[in-house]
Design a binder for these strands. Structure first.
Lengths: 111, 111
DNA sequence: TTCGTTGTTTCACGAATAACGAACATAAGA
DNA sequence: TCTTATGTTCGTTATTCGTGAAACAACGAA
């Protein structure tokens, strides 16, 4: 698909991660993935154009929050939960446990 | 000084708070205030012009993170630690405990 | 090889952000 | 009252962000 960057979270700065999480669509995606599931790109039901969604996923990826795996023409995304928890202990837990977070409601397209 | 807004954190969205914290200068200020101290505006030694600092403090204030108290021509800032912990349990702790956070080093001017 | 599916990249654009200096507002103090 | 100290607001500039349409790239299937 493309040369994807999956940075080492050890070098990732907190400000970068916070910026990545401060957008409703991106936060919604993180919430959706927070059950540990791996989702196919096209499965993501976000209220934005495909190009915009691609951009958001790129931001999450380069902030070290998600990992993308290509398989043929498809690609699958999942949350780098363990890496994040190692680098920023407690951050994801507190973010995910917050109600009324301002996150967009990202669903899964039913086939 | 000015009509200052100190919103109820109950209505504050997580995305707003994360955005406020995702700037190095603002994160640095939060870190400085995290010991619970109240600092005078002019005491803050930030690497930006006064007008810019004023703007950053306004962002922190309207995100509900700090409270400002006027006293004569001076004003004092402190972190709304308890309110934040109530609304976003664990968030501040994890943010503050992160080393290499990308925060600017905000000091205190020595008289 | 041609076609369809699946994402990505490339403009283009308006809105928001960060920054500075200059002008301003307000309260204390001389 | 005049002056000083302390922040804030305004005007400007440059940059980044969020967005969509359209063109593109890569792969599998027919």
């Amino acid at each position: 698909m493309s040369k994807q960057v999956h940075p080492d979270l050890g070098a990732t700065q907190l400000t970068t991660v916070l910026a990545a999480l401060s957008n409703p669509v991106r936060l919604g995606i993180v919430r959706l993935l927070s059950d540990g599931s791996e989702r196919q790109w096209g499965e993501l039901d976000a209220p934005v154009a495909p190009s915009t969604l691609s951009k958001h996923l790129q931001v999450l990826r380069s902030a070290g929050l998600t990992r993308t795996r290509d398989e043929g023409t498809r690609c699958y995304v999942h949350l780098r939960r363990e890496d994040i928890d190692n680098r920023f202990p407690g951050l994801l837990d507190s973010v995910l446990s917050t109600a009324g977070s301002g996150a967009a409601d990202i669903g899964v397209k039913r086939p």
